[in-house]
Simulated scan of single mutants.
Amino acid sequence: MTTLEVRNLRKNFGDVAALTDVSLTVKPGEIYGFVGSNGAGKSTTMRIILGVLAADAGEVLWDGKPITADNRRNIGYMPEERGLYAKEKILDQLVFLARLHGLGIQEATTNAQGLLEQLGLAERTTSQLTDLSLGNQQRVQLAASLVHNPDVLVLDEPFSGLDPIAVQVMSDMLISRAQQGTPVIFSSHQLDLVQRLCDRVGIISGGEMRAQGTVMELRTQGPARYEVGSPVPAQEWCPTGCRIVAEEPGQTIIEKPEHVSDQDILAAALAVGPVHSFTRRVPDLVDLFKEFVS
């Protein structure tokens, strides 16, 4: 099983620093979500992994050793700019792409037919790409990245423009590959999907990695916040050192420092009136993304 590692990548386009010391690791069986705004550096990082672009500094490692051309042949890549042949029959071009990766005709055909069946396209093998909806075109593009049984998957915005059914089909395929030990890295703007699918997440902004970790690690770092349901205004009971983040009638969000416990907040509120609800507010990935890229 393979581990893919990016270490201290730097890339400039003229005077623009596209990447500054970007590092990440995707382990066997792990799904890594790579998120950031347009122009943040996601596609540039992926193109350097693939060898389409050369880094100015840093390295890409394959099981701890510098990546080679042979390693890159074992990557399944789905580019943001879809690159299949519009007028060729779907099965024919999938077989052709598998043959380019060194598969024999029989294995290539079996793999292509099996993937199209899994993706709900078994009846469209002789269709041209332009005959398919956008969602089905995306499914074919995913099949193209999988048809040679890659050791690593690198997918740039694979869920872009998909309807919910197509999103679920593609999600299931990625989960299945990860469960077989394949490292999967994909970029996406659909942060709710990243939060649901990924074992680890990297947030990039301005060519720099702002945060990395498991979803729960990212969501629980920083000051803890609690939502307190009480009819008494927070100014009358908020413990010293805590900050009132938001308040509306009957509901207050409190941010606490490390030396104040959740029980201190609850006790302070109960000392002046009833408390109808008390819960930890864990930010979701959308909130974190806004915080890290702002």
Rank of each mutant, 00 (worst) to 15 (best):
A269G: 13
E258F: 14
A17E: 14
V16C: 12
A112D: 02
T44N: 10
D262M: 10
D151V: 02
G206Y: 01
L285W: 07
T110E: 14
I67N: 00
Y226A: 04
P183R: 13
G29F: 05
L174R: 06
S145Y: 01
P274S: 11
L100P: 02
M209F: 01
G114M: 04
Q235A: 15
V140T: 04
A69K: 15
Q93S: 02
P233D: 14
V22E: 10
G207R: 00
L50F: 11
L285N: 04
V60K: 09
V286G: 09
E117T: 11
S160V: 07
V22K: 00
L9I: 13
T2E: 15
Q141Y: 07
R82G: 10
G33E: 05
A143E: 01
G206W: 00
P233L: 08
G29Y: 05
N136S: 04
D192W: 04
V282S: 06
S133N: 01
E291W: 07
D163V: 10
Q106T: 13
E5C: 07
I48W: 03
R243M: 13
P66K: 05
E107Q: 15
E248F: 02
E217L: 02
A267Q: 10
L153A: 01
S145C: 07
G64I: 06
I31Y: 05
I175S: 11
R47M: 11
M216I: 14
V272I: 07
D172L: 06
V194N: 03
T240V: 11
T44L: 06
E107A: 15
L19M: 07
D15H: 15
E247I: 00
Y77S: 03
Y77N: 04
Q179T: 12
R281A: 09
G213E: 00
R139N: 00
R177Q: 09
S261D: 11
R196S: 07
V6Q: 02
R196I: 07
A17I: 13
F34H: 04
D163M: 10
V167K: 08
G161N: 03
A98M: 01
K290G: 15
R243D: 12
D192Y: 03
C198Q: 02
D156N: 06
Q137V: 04
G222S: 08
G229V: 09
H259D: 12
Q180N: 12
V215M: 03
S176V: 04
D70H: 09
T182H: 07
L61P: 04
L19S: 05
L121F: 05
E217Y: 08
T109Q: 13
L132I: 05
M170E: 00
L218E: 06
G206C: 09
T110D: 14
S171N: 11
T125H: 02
P223Y: 12
S230C: 08
V147Q: 00
L24K: 08
A86E: 14
Q190W: 01
K87M: 09
D192S: 12
T44Q: 02
L155I: 09
D15V: 14
H101F: 11
E5D: 10
P239M: 11
S176D: 12
N38G: 10
N8P: 08
D199W: 01
T220I: 10
V154N: 05
